[in-house]
């Protein structure tokens, strides 16, 4: 689907939802660049009801920002349907599909008996599962959501589980297949980043990252690379962090300095060139986005100080490790524009080959086709939350990596 048609669908979604948007180019004419988009209720409050950022070529970034804002709105509390909630005992969840999850030890020991869950369908195979809502909805575990938790009959204490809550795996698309592909790739990307952290900082020191030779980048990727160096004011390292799942995953990285934390962008796609493009443009986006941030304590690593190894993960200083990197040429592959449905099937097959099953939930499907989904793959890691300052530990998958390196 063309960007122009996608933009039309995005505007149709706003009309259905009774919202208006305010957008701006944060990169002020750069190419690639980043756009921001705030959504406001028609005739409503002056505060935005949702916010999103987009990256890439100017039009791609403008439309991407609109769609990310729509995603955040459709997966947020405004559309929460308490009647869809099913309650399950945390201990049972820890013994079921989530027995390989990093938060299983917390679930297993919880005193509550009724945890709010939503029903997910498997991507391939059979057997729906209940997934705890807190895993995908940080807003649900906050103090201000106590009324929502009462409404669902949830009696669990989330004061520790909140550390493992993030919206990763949520995505929106012009159709369900596109949303599913984005969500699956995002889950695989966060897992690959998490495993990279484990290898770099929690293993015995023999890890050698794969550093892409910048001289071998395709033209459009090289253009994004040059813009990333211009925006960050720093040499950029492009690393291949593809996990055993096998879907190409790239990370564009600059180290921490005395003035700012490390910066990174990551991308996952069956196309290595597109994965690199997403990584580099995300680095551009997060750097330009620093001027917009009102994140308060986020990224503050003080809470990790009691655990030096976790603090090292949070700081993410690869300076020493990059000196030992293996320099590799950018993977040259035939790039075919396979439709999202086919890519979803291939990615699901690659996950299954490693013993993992993805599960999906449709958060909202609008008449114009715009669809928001959440995907979870039990067993894959979300340890990358440590780089936000969250005190989390890897799950069994990360442990296995640490002990096998």
């Amino acid at each position: 689907m063309s960007l122009a048609e996608a933009a039309k669908r995005g505007l149709a979604a706003l009309a259905v939802l009774g919202l208006r948007k305010e957008s701006a180019d944060v990169g002020r004419g750069r190419d690639p660049t980043a756009w921001r988009c705030g959504l406001y209720a028609d005739g409503g409050d002056v505060s935005p009801v949702a916010f999103g950022m987009g990256k890439g070529r100017p039009e791609e970034a403008r439309v991407g920002a609109l769609f990310e804002a729509v995603e955040h709105y459709l997966t947020g509390p405004a559309w929460f349907d308490s009647t869809a909630v099913e309650l399950a005992g945390p201990a049972g969840l820890a013994a079921g599909p989530f027995h390989e999850d990093a938060c299983a030890p917390l679930l297993a020991g919880m005193p509550g008996r009724r945890m709010a869950c939503l029903r997910y369908r498997p991507l391939g195979g059979q057997g729906a599962v209940l997934v705890p809502l807190f895993l995908s909805a940080p807003w649900y575990v906050e103090a201000g959501a106590a009324r929502l938790r009462d409404l669902t009959g949830d009696d669990c204490d989330y004061s520790h589980l909140v550390r493992y809550s993030c919206n990763s795996g949520s995505a929106v698309g012009v159709a369900a297949s596109e949303a599913l592909l984005h969500a699956l790739n995002e889950v695989i990307e966060r897992d690959a980043l998490s495993l990279f952290l484990v290898r770099a900082f929690l293993s015995d020191g023999r890890f050698r990252p794969r550093l892409i030779d910048a001289g071998t980048l395709p033209y459009s990727t090289a253009q994004a690379y040059a813009t990333a160096e211009d925006v960050t004011g720093s040499p950029v390292q492009l690393l291949d962090i593809t996990s055993d799942v096998g879907v190409p995953t790239m990370m564009a990285y600059t180290p921490p300095t005395s003035r700012h934390p490390h910066r990174r962008g990551t991308g996952t796609s069956l196309s290595p060139a597109y994965a690199a493009w997403r990584a580099l443009t995300e680095l551009i986006q997060v750097t330009l986005g620093e001027s917009l941030s009102q994140s308060g304590p986020r990224g503050d690593l003080a809470g990790l100080a009691a655990h030096p190894a976790l603090h090292a993960c949070g700081r993410f200083d690869l300076t020493g490790l990059l000196g030992e990197a293996r320099v590799v040429a950018f993977p040259q592959t035939a790039e075919a524009g396979e439709p999202p449905e086919g890519q979803v099937r291939r990615v699901v097959t690659m996950l299954a080959a490693r013993g993992y099953t993805g599960y999906r939930r449709t958060a909202r499907a609008l008449a114009c086709g715009v669809t928001a989904v959440h995907v979870i793959v039990p067993g894959l890691e979300r340890f990358m939350l440590v780089t936000d300052g969250n005190l989390v530990i890897p799950g069994p998958r990360g442990h296995a990596i640490a002990s096998s390196e």
């Binding site: 917390l106 929690l202 020191g205 655990h307 976790l310 936000d388 005190l391 530990i393 442990h399 640490a402």
Partner: peptide
């Protein structure tokens, strides 16, 4: 883009760090 481990997490982390 308020931080202490539970006993179960402490044990898992200690087990992981013992591999280093």
């Amino acid at each position: 883009f308020d931080q202490h481990l539970t006993q179960a997490e402490h044990e898992r982390l200690a087990e992981l760090l013992s591999t280093m």
